[in-house]
Design a binder for these strands. Sequence first.
DNA 1: GTGAAAGCGCTAACAT
DNA 2: ATGTTAGCGCTTTCAC
Lengths: 364, 364
Amino acid sequence: MKREVTIRDVAQAARVSPSTVSNLLNGRDGRMRPRTKARITRAIDELGYRPSRVARQLRTGQAQAFGLVVPSVANPFWGSFARAVESVAMRHGDQVLLCNSERDPERERAYVDELWAGGIRAVIIGTSLLSLDHLRPLMERGLRLVAFDRERQPADPPNLASVSVDNLLGGQLATEHLLAFGHRRIGFISGAIATVSRQRRLAGYRAALERAGVPFRDELVWAGEGNGYGDIDSAELGRQGMAALLDLPEPPSAVVTINDMYAIGACATARAAGLAIPGEHHGLSVVGFDDIVLAPLFNPPLTTVRQPLDDMARFAIEAIRRDTGDENEDEQPISAVMPPQLVARASTAAFATTLPANDHRSAH
Amino acid sequence: MKREVTIRDVAQAARVSPSTVSNLLNGRDGRMRPRTKARITRAIDELGYRPSRVARQLRTGQAQAFGLVVPSVANPFWGSFARAVESVAMRHGDQVLLCNSERDPERERAYVDELWAGGIRAVIIGTSLLSLDHLRPLMERGLRLVAFDRERQPADPPNLASVSVDNLLGGQLATEHLLAFGHRRIGFISGAIATVSRQRRLAGYRAALERAGVPFRDELVWAGEGNGYGDIDSAELGRQGMAALLDLPEPPSAVVTINDMYAIGACATARAAGLAIPGEHHGLSVVGFDDIVLAPLFNPPLTTVRQPLDDMARFAIEAIRRDTGDENEDEQPISAVMPPQLVARASTAAFATTLPANDHRSAH
DNA sequence: GTGAAAGCGCTAACAT
DNA sequence: ATGTTAGCGCTTTCAC
């Protein structure tokens, strides 16, 4: 393992001082003699010199990298988001440090602490916990934080940026879609309603019901058990939720789920119980949320609410890059709420009001 | 934004020198007076001191972090792998830098270069390109590289570590499973066979056919078009592959796919063409590879070949942590080949040798 | 236009 | 048992 080529080696080879090389590297070459410039450039190429990020960072305090904390990249939604973020970041020459929080606030804190110690001063956090207090100390020290999938809350510190889809509208679109199909008993399946986005999706569901004059029924909302960390196995929670709703004396004819993984789990349970998706008389309509890559490929293709992932990633990174280092504390909070889009596919269908003439399936 | 607490602040508060603090921090406290130790510990707590990774790294050259380069975290297999790696890494206090190569060797090189410049001296690379020459220069400079999903090749440099499932056996298991069900016309769907793992899975497929006395037919192997970078949309390639095989004068009755995403895409196409999965007379059996989280939830649940992801992640990290900094060049190459496991689910079924008594579907 | 010098926060060899 | 010192590779005043 050879020793690294340093800025001094380059300086020596080009017969200039390290500061001159540094000046060129950092664009302060306005009044530099073309000949000197050429000598330096040549030396850099010949020696294969690459400046050390570490040294630069120690000196400047700026990290050319930021953290990305998501519940779990094992969920394709977060995987796609991570990819989108990384792709935008790369264009700016930024590196991305990925962390899986599993929705555990303690892990979130530990990770962000760790990132901070690594010189990272900006983090995109993809969990929409109600309170971000566990990150406040670091924010007060100067951490730039962007919350993804979490609408801005009144009590949030002003230097917290936010990007989110309009979750209320999303929940509403999903529910209205089913209402328009004539469904009246509509279930809602989610893990613990412990995040802003889930609260708002549920609120959208209620709002849609109300507007349609359909009474809200508590028993049709399944919201997991216990504290319910864990995107570890959303699909499993979807299964459990569906099982619970099917156990009801009068099960729903359609279901809104908190995301596509839940939807897929819910469908699996329904099928195992002999129900068709969708089914007019003996079955269920299911709508998801996110529109993951797999949604259109699922059997049946999943009706879902799409989040504009690329736009959101772009905005998050812009937010993080804004006022790098500057001291403009008293600015407007940076925040965006993006429009969701209902994507109607085959997992939802009209509710049949009349009974079937004859039902072959009952023979089975 | 307050100034950071440094080791000097701690030293001052504890009325010792920075080196004493450093000694304690780095476990060189064998003969340190308990009282001094206590004073230092107390000062650290009170000031909320956290050592700077950057400074430490600049000094030691060691990066408490490594890179993870995968084709794309949008594919749940790589998402799960990334999560497994990160989870093991965290237990060691290591950070993980995630990079999506999209299977583009130029991107791989650029990323690894970038990581190297960032002081990262070890990288797990999850693409099994035939040649790793584009990374050779850096390896010669001392980069520790672990190839994941790529069996060790004779021409590989000795300091390249490898972890992989036994892909030959995997391809064989998948094919034998279908053969045992009586299938004789078995298709193989993959993107460009430009990686070691794909070559070996295909070889396993051939070996199984041969052993069963079934002639290998070129037209039953669909291997994408062009160079075919991109895990960007494996499912889409699966669709295309299936479409091509169904266009054959005599289509296969079963199909082995290069991974679960391909399988899911292939199923979607087959269904769209009115075929059942699996189907005795008018349908297809499909087997995937990887056993992603979604495989059991798919409709029908996917028969697939499981990779022992956690074991592989653990091994990869052990390999990376081995001989950190040491100069043992002439050691045995580190390499592991792990056993795959066939997971039989509902997407495969017996091939019917007799024709159906009456075929209702032909009416449609 | 270019260079000398100081220092970012830490560690480790060497003194005491 | 603890302190002194000299950097790691880079940037950035401030001189010339």
